[in-house]
Amino acid sequence: MNKSRRTQATSGSLAGSALGRYGYLVPIFVLFILVELYPFVYSVVLSFWNKHLLHPNADQFIGLGNYIKMLQSPHFIRAIRNSTVFTVGSVVFEYLVGLGSALILNSRHIKFRNLFRAIVLLPWVVPIAVNSLIWKFMLSPNFGFINQLLAAIGFPHLLTVNWLGDIRYAMPAVIFVNVWRSFPFYTITLLAGLAQIPSDLYEAASIDGASKWQSFIHITLPGIRGVSQVIVVLHIIWTFVNFDVIYLLTKGGPLRMTEVVPTLLYREAFDFFNMGYAAAMGVFLLVVLAITVGRAYTKTSSFQ
């Protein structure tokens, strides 16, 4: 009975302060323009210029020159390929390890679940600078823990393997470290997803004589589909643009086997000071992301 009155009051109150209502957007708008939009537009503009810090007087508009140079560069092509391998490898294994660990922690036999959950999350919370340091140490040839352990359990020839410095192992090694660091996010999120599956579904299935495996396929997996989509899409983006992990572990080496687009961009910008060229790579990175996962991302994210 109050419906019409309320609507009236609401619209009245809303209409009365139209300007004020937009005022709420001012803080985010200002900050957004300052730290996101302006730098982004600046980068796009920069990417059409030849700007080199060592030749300050040679700034020149070159149109698509940087993009053409980039697409013709074997280093860039390799970086794109490495970025793809790194991203796909990381996300697949992160998901598998994350799902496995979530299932373990979700088991009804486990006590102190909250404690274990907190421990599992540790690699994700500790700064990458620390994580990469620990793993550089653990994976060192000769005296690294992993190498010594492998030698002790019957693989003496692995004692001297330079995991992060050998062209055959460097990419798997950085993926391994990245998976170790990132999978806890999957664990925690999937665990929350698992908790949302009504337990009577499992009971009903078990009464119908379904095996554990069948319940897993027909109840668990569909139950966590939504959560899985979100974390996978998010991690594809985060991994594709991640700079810290590879920079701190290998700086893109050996022989550029782990050179991904962000580290190549950084090298061009801050080792060789080719700012315009580096900016072109950044813009390219964003465009690739927008084309490939942009749709999935806007669909699955909380914005709907």
Binding site: V35, P39, S43, A279, G282, L286
Partner: peptide, 11 residues
């Protein structure tokens, strides 16, 4: 989705 490295130079 913005790569942080892209914003590094203009920032």
């Amino acid at each position: 989705m913005m790569p942080g490295v892209l914003l590094l130079i203009p920032l």
